[in-house]
Computed example of a mutant assay.
Amino acid sequence: MTDASFDLQRDAFGRLVLTTAGGARHAGVTPVRAFPIAAPDEGLSLVSAEGREIAWAEHLSDLPAPARALIEEELASREFMPEIQRIVEVSGFICPSTWRVLTDRGPADLRLKGEDDIRRLSRTRLLIADSHGIHFLVRDVGALDRRSKKLLDRFL
């Protein structure tokens, strides 16, 4: 289905409702990013409540502004991945350890169970899972301050 061949709105219950160009109505639609970390604005699927893809958009920016706003709002309510900007303190260099970090959403403490909780996504990008299942993103290790890089190197 092409990007412009549907209408997207919210119903009285707050669910996304997609109406196709042919008039088929799908309530409870969920937007799913194809590449949520590597390319969050590329490849977006709109999936029915039954788990079937109803619509696909190559780029989020290709969608009309009202539909794009609804999708971004829905994704923001479901996706929570703070981005680490600085590592302030680490309780110890053996796991488990507690990290005090500064994120794009404010200060946070995370508990690292083991070095396996740090996953390298690319040469510069890391995903850190804390003991509560929250994922923290380090978008660019090289952009971290010197102290943060030094603390992080002890775990890599």
Rank of each mutant, 00 (worst) to 15 (best):
I128D: 02
L152R: 12
G22N: 12
A67Q: 15
D109Q: 14
E50W: 02
F13W: 04
P96E: 05
S91V: 10
A12H: 06
E72P: 07
A57D: 03
P96K: 07
L137R: 06
R33V: 02
R147N: 12
L70P: 08
P31Y: 03
S61R: 11
P64G: 06
R86M: 13
G22V: 10
H135D: 10
L152F: 14
E83Y: 13
W99Y: 06
P82A: 15
P36N: 04
V90I: 11
E115I: 10
S48L: 08
P40C: 04
F6K: 00
I87R: 04
A57T: 03
D145H: 08
H132L: 14
E74R: 13
I84V: 15
R100D: 15
L16R: 00
R86W: 13
A34H: 06
P66M: 02
H132P: 00
F6W: 01
M1V: 10
D116P: 02
C95H: 02
M81L: 15
A67L: 14
C95D: 00
R25F: 08
L156T: 08
H135I: 00
D11G: 11
F155N: 14
A55S: 13
D62C: 00
D104F: 10
T20G: 05
A34K: 07
P36V: 05
A4L: 09
R111V: 15
E89M: 12
A21N: 11
P107G: 08
L46G: 00
I37R: 09
A108Q: 13
L137H: 11
P82C: 14
M1N: 06
G51R: 03
A65L: 10
E53Q: 11
A49P: 10
I94V: 01
A34F: 04
R52G: 15
P66V: 02
R154K: 08
R139H: 12
T103K: 08
A27Y: 03
S77P: 09
T19W: 05
A21E: 11
I54Y: 08
Q85I: 10
P31H: 06
A12D: 09
G92A: 12
F80N: 09
E72T: 09
V17R: 01
F93W: 06
A12C: 04
D109T: 14
Q9D: 07
V138S: 08
K150A: 12
D130K: 12
D145I: 06
V90M: 03
D109A: 13
L16E: 00
P36H: 07
I37M: 11
K113C: 04
A12Q: 08
G23D: 10
E72N: 14
A39W: 05
E50D: 12
A69I: 09
P36Q: 10
E58A: 15
L152P: 04
A21D: 12
R111K: 14
A34L: 08
W99D: 01
R111W: 05
S77L: 15
L110I: 10
G106V: 07
D62V: 00
S122P: 05
M1R: 04
I118N: 12
V90T: 09
R154T: 05
I54P: 05
T20M: 12
L75N: 01
R52Y: 13
I134D: 00
A49G: 10
E50M: 02
A27E: 01
E58P: 11
A27C: 03
H59L: 09
H135L: 05
D3V: 05
E53Y: 02
P66F: 02
